[in-house]
Design a binder for these strands. Sequence first.
DNA 1: CTTACATTAGACAATTATTGACAAGTCAAT
DNA 2: ATTGACTTGTCAATAATTGTCTAATGTAAG
Lengths: 98, 98
Amino acid sequence: MRFGEHIRQLREQNKLLLRHLASELDIDTAMMSKIERSERKAKREHIPQLAKLLRASVTELQTLYIADQIIELLDDEENPRAILYAAEKEINQMKKDS
Amino acid sequence: MRFGEHIRQLREQNKLLLRHLASELDIDTAMMSKIERSERKAKREHIPQLAKLLRASVTELQTLYIADQIIELLDDEENPRAILYAAEKEINQMKKDS
DNA sequence: CTTACATTAGACAATTATTGACAAGTCAAT
DNA sequence: ATTGACTTGTCAATAATTGTCTAATGTAAG
């Protein structure tokens, strides 16, 4: 589930309209629509606001938010699994160092 | 191993100087230095040139290149493993759809 | 059908991030 | 002290992203 998709799902569950979220984030509804369709990215500082409005966990949204950007990177790549694996290896390495 | 680190290693193995690579990529040596220290990103189109100069596999370098950007994303995050896992789940999902 | 409201599309402007050059600096070897 | 390799900091140019506005499309109710 992409970040935007998830936001939309929560929004509908909460019976809110795009303009409700948009006004809270102080952007116009067109922009909000784009965010939900992953055509644009929300700003990081939007996440806590969204979490509150949608009664969702900030951590969960943040996780999805970054995961989404990873997807974006991998999307047009030949072998996304191999790349992810390389990244994972490096993350593990980092842990060791710190 | 980060992308830049790897480039540096290969460069030293091949007994080349920063300015050799730099001139080939048509950037200055300061820039090349930054690339090797992951302070700046190489351009995508630099990769084939680097692969040739360093007698390395284009695919390998490309993998590392994107993995590096993932690292970058995760680097200041609370729980990188969870995020990677979420991304992986979504990648698998994508495969199903296509 | 037509009105009213929600959402989406596209073009452009504003903002922010990235790339790269340049000049000055460190460091090691001689 | 000089030279050569590399690094650092600052700033301008460029590129990418975010956002707005207007018009279009969809959709449900009367």
